[in-house]
Amino acid sequence: MSNTVLIIDDDSELRAFLVGALTNHGFKTAEVSNASQAEEVAVQVRPTLILLDLGLPDGDGLELLQQLRARNATTPVIVLSARDQVEDKVSALDLGANDYLTKPFNMRELLARVRVALRHAGHRTATPDPIVNAGPVRIDHERHEITVDGVPTRLTPIEFRLLSTLARNAGKVLTHRQLLEEVWGPGKETETHYLRVHMASLRRKVERDPARPRWLATEPGIGYRLRDE
């Protein structure tokens, strides 16, 4: 593992800030300002993680993401984007980006996203762990049991699959499409209403106050994330 974060962003001050911040946290860094250099540098430095600004002036961030993914399917990519670029974020996530950060972001968010992405990248096994812990949730896949804060909780089969999928990806956003595909199977990718209904009942079973969820976070227009810290 090179432990190098590749920063692809057109703003030199932001790149300099990210270099400093990541270096302070023990990473090496490489930086490029445009899409055309990005592919070449990605091959040279074999980054452990990529930060990719979706609004590059010389090209299409999504196109670059596809090219990076075509070469390397596993290096985590976190996209940097504006709040209102919802469609772009969804496209990026469905194209295999691991997560996104909305500018302006703070250091804590950045480092949390990086940590989560690296953890999931290093944890790609064929068989999922039989026991998954995330926040207050503990899932025993073999015994098909769930506890929330140690209290056994009865879930419907759909809720179980939903929570299990979110917990296996704890800390990481999952799009509506990804969740629908994973839980309901192919052909249901656009049925966001199912998802909304079952997430609402799940919140009632997992959260103390479903209107102010501590763990099951909604990313409006994008998907859901099970917070893990």
Partner: peptide, 27 residues
């Protein structure tokens, strides 16, 4: 192929550009 809805009008471009210094300040 999906394309980024890259902001082309001058205001959106400015908004995009301002988000980077704001990120540095916030960071």
């Amino acid at each position: 192929m999906s394309r980024t809805t890259s902001p082309q009008d001058p205001f959106s471009r400015l908004a995009h550009d301002l988000r980077s210094p704001l990120s540095v300040i916030a960071g």
